[in-house]
Nucleic acid binder design. Structure first.
Lengths: 237, 237, 237, 237
DNA sequence: GATGAATGAGTTTTCATTCAT
DNA sequence: GATGAATGAAAACTCATTCAT
């Protein structure tokens, strides 16, 4: 493989790879926009091409068929969750703090791409069995990150015995809810407030009595979050 | 208006009305089935007619167009919520008990018609502006029943000061979640357990210290529910 | 056949015949109205039934199919021509006067039922071959009445040698034109004026020099018509 | 804009424009044929596509909907009138000669496209309000050309005072009549004879006494036309 | 690689006609 | 005789996908 002075891979394959990912991004971004507005079925491939500024033929050069456009869009959001949630936990060691930071990062991604977050609920059923499995696997993986912290918290004694998987899905659901019910919740609320309120709801029944004081700030829905957790989670101003 | 020996209204208009509602039920039931499996867009009207055992023309005799089939299906579920939730509260006076009974009844309907419950999330965006408003209004109305009890609970001092509207939507969301995440939750869990667990999660942060003992049973996720609340809520075994 | 005191036929067959003609009139009148507005194809049989104040089934009891409704409507107008044109000539002996009276009567019918007159041009092609033959035969018959007078006029020497058939169709066409081009002609003109103007146009080239003086009034487009001819022809004020 | 050796515009836009007009012509020609036989409503778009030798999709690539196919067909004939009538007058200065030449050219177009000429009468009512306005405007424009000559003839004193607009419509109607009544007129007559006969009918009442001699040839229905007027007008042999 | 014209299967919807009541 | 609910064939129109340029 050839490399240029700065260490970047060059040569025909590198050019091709770069073009491919650039094209896919063009397409996925345009598709996310259109599908958010009109839905998967009402987005025609030619409208997508127009929105992306390319031709129909080019769309089909980079994606096999309409369904794989949908898959690419959904994977794109789910990949963002899978990247941002662990990124927010880096540097934190306490399971409860990691959990809080992960949840707030999740919520932050949802808030930044609300329309895309809704798509996973609205359009997944249009995927083939295999594609659906991939989407589910991604969702399970991200929720799994939260579940792991819930289990770790139990192990350290900070959290009471609980159904970690159920609680993990609760956290995921509450993050998604910000997008799903934004019509009802978003008018007079702010993501930050929303996130803290939901976190306190979930942690309330979870924290062991002995740990309540230590994590008291999480139980105070309207209170300020400890610096660490807020760092990543407080996305939109 | 003529009436027969049993007091039933008879005569041409009564026959027509009865036929109309029977036909609409046939159609709505078939549509709920097909849309649950294939989605709104992938359900063709002729497939619907076949499933309902009638002709395409007959479908259009009772519903104006495909969109109004969707609306009828969604209203059908939402109407069930709006009927069952208050029905479950009848006879109860304590706000917390009414809230619990309402939530469990809501969950019970969701459990009984999981596919239909998901449709509201998946297909609402295919409705026209006006139809969407009707659907939203119905959803708001049912959630409003829970919000009212949350406010009443605050007034009696049983519940702490809280964002009643947000908590109301949380309860709604957690009921819907049983359908939305059933793939993940339903395999090894039972609605009854699920309902009590979620109720305890929500009530934990809400109950005033003074009321904790009184409603202790609600805070015990796996514990038995007090007779009253369980009576209505414990639908599917 | 039974007859009542006034000599009217009675009995079941008479009742049936009377009902049949009454029903057909209801239907033809409604159809003429609707077809005039919407055209034959855009008039649905159920809309026709509604307009006529009867049920679809009843329409089919009196007319075999949609095409025969069209035929009935067209025959209705053409029959009116065939009745009114000779009626206007009754009592007149002079061929030129008879011709003038016939033309003006024709025009008068057209004026009274403009929409129906247009239907013959617009919708005839939707008739079956046989039905079309009947319509054509009726039109030929009426024009033939004018052609006969043209020939008679030649025989008496009042009219010059001419292509009587062509002139007959010209007169027919000019009568129809009042309906066909009414948008352009009707705004600032009156049927009476129109009729006299067209008659003078046609007669000008026809009258033998010796007869010009005698029928001078017909050549004066804006002049008054001789009493006889005006009697019938001056329909709309 | 690029041009090839022969000065033809080339490049993608030129190709596209050429293809578009070629396709539209294919479609309009096929539609004129089918609509002439079956009428607008009974011509299905798929039958049209078959007749044109293309696919349904291609029809819709070049024309928005079925109505615009009809409009294209009607505009096509009306545009021919609007082009041929003035073309026939070029080089003539005398209003009466120009009028005669214009009328005969009009008739010539009608004769060349009889079925299409009838369509304007049969199918106009299927147009939308706006499309109808366009069709009417075109018809008025062509008749206006004749009306202008009628007025010019009055100004020079060749024609008597008359209702120029009415006479203009008469000429238009008589040209159309060749198509509308062809069943009755066409069997034993020839367009040339028909045209001269009708022209003489119209001019008879119109020519001022002083001009009768000069334009005597126009008044002789069966006589030869003066060279100029015959040149253009004598279309079909 | 990129384009976009062409395709035709598939969708929603209408409506003439029938026939049990 | 009168009704109008039921039927299903047929129509207009869309759009994912291909492929010659």
């Amino acid at each position: 493989m050839e490399r240029d002075a700065t260490g970047m891979t060059v040569g025909p394959e590198a050019i091709r790879a770069a073009r491919t990912s650039w094209r896919r991004r063009q397409i996925v971004d345009a598709a996310t926009r259109l599908m958010g507005e009109q839905g998967y079925h009402d987005m025609s491939v030619s409208a997508l091409a127009r929105e992306a500024g390319i031709s129909v033929g080019t769309v089909y050069q980079y994606l096999d068929n309409k369904e794989s456009i949908l898959l690419a869009v959904l994977e794109d959001v789910l990949d963002t969750y899978a990247a941002e949630v662990p990124a927010a936990m880096v540097g934190l060691v306490d399971p409860v703090e990691r959990l809080a930071a992960g949840f707030l990062a999740y919520l932050d991604v949802v808030d930044g791409r609300r329309a895309a977050a809704v798509l996973a609920y609205r359009e997944s059923h249009s995927l083939s069995r295999e594609a659906l499995q991939r989407v589910i696997a991604l969702e399970v993986a991200t929720t799994g990150l939260l579940v792991a912290e819930l289990r770790a918290g139990s192990a350290t004694g900070a959290l009471r015995a609980h159904d970690a998987e159920l609680v993990g899905w609760n956290l995921t659901m509450l993050a998604h809810m910000w997008a799903l019910k934004h019509r009802h919740l978003g008018a007079y609320r702010d993501v930050g407030v929303y996130g803290r309120a939901q976190l306190s709801t979930v942690l309330c029944g979870l924290l062991a009595d002995a740990a309540r004081e230590r994590y008291g700030s999480f139980l105070e829905p309207t209170g300020a979050l400890p610096a660490q957790a807020a760092r990543r989670g407080g996305g939109s101003p």
